[in-house]
């Protein structure tokens, strides 16, 4: 029987939805499930880890693990994988997952696959499906090792209703800090900010917004909808948006219920981060803009005119 170890995705002390999605998939393929949770002050997350669908919880809880550091985190995962005898080790899509997965694979001498959208098991043979070449093609990849370490693409698996696990907590020993890569400081996101990865609605602003006033205008729409507020690379490079708000191939991959692209042209690298969304709305003044090729609803118009009307109309329809 397959044994899946899912690495809990924890941010600001909360368990993110991706963890339950991966555990649901593991149960759906009939695997035995475990979760590895790494951080500081995370004891209280145990019920959430169980409810997400894990049957064993490997927990590394220590003040020294409060700030993410790829080396010690990888040691914890390797330890849990060995204790559990995992043959599949899955990370939910995150920058941290992308940094740790290859280390774990190297230490276990296992294969590593990133951005997978599916796993196929036939007997002992593991295969994965993943996009490549900026989503222009898909690949079916044959895994030749007994173990596979994988990062799952955002939105690939769905959390099943009514799944739960059993509590069986195993404490992991705490690895030494990485003295060769010392975190000096984290310029954290403003507290209370909505995480792009969790948001049901994501609104992204592009170069069409021109300057700070344009960005603020679109931000108001995002605030109205309690939406995650993201951006294209152009606005990150322009210094208007933080780097970790970038949606796309080299930023966040999002799959919300509703994605709004405001003043974004739809370069393939941007599309690679958002075409998994359920519904896409685009506002762009150029009717030939490639963003309209992927949008369910396209408004051809000047965003400075359209966004205030959007806000009004949404308020009206909601009341």
């Amino acid at each position: 029987m397959a044994k899946v170890l899912v690495i809990a995705d924890i941010k600001q002390g909360m368990l993110k939805g991706g963890t339950a999605e991966l555990l649901s998939k593991a149960k759906a393929i009939g695997a035995e499930t475990a979760v590895a949770a790494i951080g500081s002050n995370i004891e209280s997350l145990t019920p959430d880890l169980v409810n997400a669908g894990s049957d064993t919880q490997y927990i590394a809880d220590d003040p020294g693990l409060e700030l993410f550091s790829a080396g010690p985190y990888a040691s914890c995962v390797v330890d849990a994988a060995k204790q559990f005898g995992a043959n599949l080790i899955w990370f939910a899509f995150s920058e941290n997952g992308k940094a740790v997965a290859p280390r774990v694979a190297a230490q276990l001498d296992a294969a590593c696959a990133t951005e997978i959208t599916d796993v196929i098991l036939e007997g002992d043979q593991i295969e994965v499906i993943r996009p490549a070449i900026t989503n222009k093609v898909m690949q079916r990849v044959k895994i030749n090792t007994e173990q596979l370490v994988a990062v799952v693409r955002a939105g690939a698996f769905e959390a099943a209703e009514g799944i739960t696990g059993t509590e069986n907590v195993v404490k992991l020993s705490i690895p030494a800090a990485d003295l060769k890569a010392v975190i000096k400081e984290i310029l954290t996101d403003a507290s209370g900010e909505i995480d792009l990865a969790d948001a049901d609605v994501v609104i992204s602003v592009g170069r069409g917004a021109k300057d700070q006033a344009g960005v603020d205008l679109v931000k108001e729409l995002a605030d109205d909808l309690s939406a995650g507020f993201g951006s294209s690379r152009a606005m990150v490079d322009g210094g208007f948006m933080a780097h970790n708000k970038q949606v796309g191939q080299t930023g966040k991959i999002v799959a919300p219920t509703l994605y709004m692209a405001i003043g974004i042209s739809g370069a393939i690298q941007h599309l690679a981060g958002m075409t998994g969304s359920k519904v896409i709305l685009a506002v762009n003044k150029d009717p030939e803009s490639p963003i309209f090729n992927v949008a369910d609803y396209g408004i051809v118009g000047d965003l400075f005119e359209v966004v205030p009307i959007l806000r009004e109309e949404i308020k009206k329809i909601r009341s």
């Binding site: 941010k11 700030l67 400081e185 954290t188």
Partner: peptide, 12 residues
């Protein structure tokens, strides 16, 4: 650029 924000790291 990490999940929680921008991390400043000193590397030996």
């Amino acid at each position: 650029s990490g999940d929680a924000g921008t991390e400043i790291i000193e590397l030996a």
